[in-house]
Amino acid sequence: MHFSYYMPTKIHFGCGEFEKAPAYIGTVGKRVLIVTGKYAMKKYGFTKILVEGLTSLGIQSALFEGVSANPLASEVNQCVETFADWQPDVVVALGGGSAIDAGKGIVLGLSTREKVETYLLGQSPITHVDIPLIAIPTTAGTGSETNWAAILTDEYSGIKTSFRHKGLFPCMAIVDPQLTVSLLPGNTVETGFDVFAHAVETYISKSGVAPLIATHSLAAIRLVRQYLPQVLKNGQDITARNNMMYASMLMGFNLANSSTCLPHRLQYPIGVKTNSSHGSGLMALFKSWLDTTYEISEEKFNCIGEALSGNPCRNKEEFMLAYQQFTQSIHRNGSLADFSLGKEDIPYLASKVTGSLANDPAGGIPGIVEKIYNGACK
């Protein structure tokens, strides 16, 4: 057996770890730029708690609260321009995947003094990232706290895509499940489905060859199957919140060592065109992708079906039934109609799909993108 696996992020996981965040941050830097979204962190008091904790330890901080739910390249550039002369020695991203992805763009911009589009649109390779990033996730979804990718939207070209570099791995992740208790059911199910999608896609991906990836994927699918319905019934269920946060973090490990498949590539244009959440777009696409590609990876999909249902899965009918029962348990079964999109929008959406399709076993099939979009209209 031979494989490579890389994970440089130091992790502090558990309820109550957020209270220790100022002390953890102080071991990395004394001049801290905090990056958050526009509303939620202030609403729930998390930003205030963090700033006051840093101040009590004599650690200087500044705050950028300008990150959208679908983070924009222009927001990253605005932050870099504002704080370049202040010269932070560490950036702390507090929030969901949007804040953490923006934080990755910000440490890149502060390091290079270039606009982030240069790297997002592939005009130049990333050669160095000099400023460390600490991630404090407040959703159980993206796993961005333990991977090396950032996903941003260039609003001028209408393209949502990603860039990667080992310097974008957070040097530290402070993962406290208590921070997710305040999530509303809609946010919980959308981010939770992203965990499930990461597990399925990294397992199916042709780049997911390390045995640890398969182990983590199947473990995460079992955790989501059990605990996402529970946390939707009772958002205060801290055991369910713990397990969803753990599954999300595991999928960050997978994303650092494997890749997603067609659903993620196809969701990005939906998110840009409709300004909708990543998880809701994935839910609209996923059944069509599974139905279209099952035969290409039949053995792997059957393993997923068994993890999802707890019963042996031997054919497509049993697999699709397992998926249907899962979506029923979380009360979601979306389509493109949820976004007021139909067949007439498919040519535009397909024209905005970016990134390599080669890691999906079905990626080389002519017309596969349009076929999945078409199936998602039903």
Rank of each mutant, 00 (worst) to 15 (best):
K10E: 08
Y294F: 15
H128E: 11
L72P: 01
V107F: 03
T146G: 03
G192W: 01
I11H: 05
R265T: 09
V51W: 06
T215W: 07
P125T: 11
V80M: 07
V175C: 15
G158F: 03
N187T: 15
S144G: 11
Y5V: 07
Q236K: 09
D85C: 09
H264A: 15
Y156M: 15
S4K: 06
G95V: 04
S248C: 12
F326D: 07
L54V: 04
F339Q: 07
T188V: 03
T260C: 14
T153A: 14
R222E: 12
H128Y: 09
F253I: 14
K287W: 13
F46K: 04
L152E: 11
C261E: 04
H278E: 13
T161Q: 05
W86E: 08
L94E: 11
I296A: 02
P177M: 06
F3W: 08
V116G: 03
R113E: 00
D154G: 01
M283Q: 13
K10C: 05
W148I: 15
M245C: 08
A73Y: 09
K233S: 03
H2A: 00
A197E: 01
V67A: 11
V91E: 05
Q328A: 12
A219Y: 06
G66W: 13
C171T: 15
N243G: 03
Y156N: 13
Q230K: 06
N242Q: 03
I174V: 15
A150V: 02
V224I: 05
P361S: 11
C377D: 06
T142N: 06
I59M: 09
Y323R: 02
Q78Y: 14
Y44Q: 03
T327E: 07
I59G: 01
M244G: 01
N147P: 02
V32K: 00
N302W: 03
S182T: 15
A102E: 10
P177L: 10
E299F: 01
K343I: 14
P312K: 05
I34M: 06
I136D: 10
M251F: 09
V76D: 13
Y268W: 12
P88S: 13
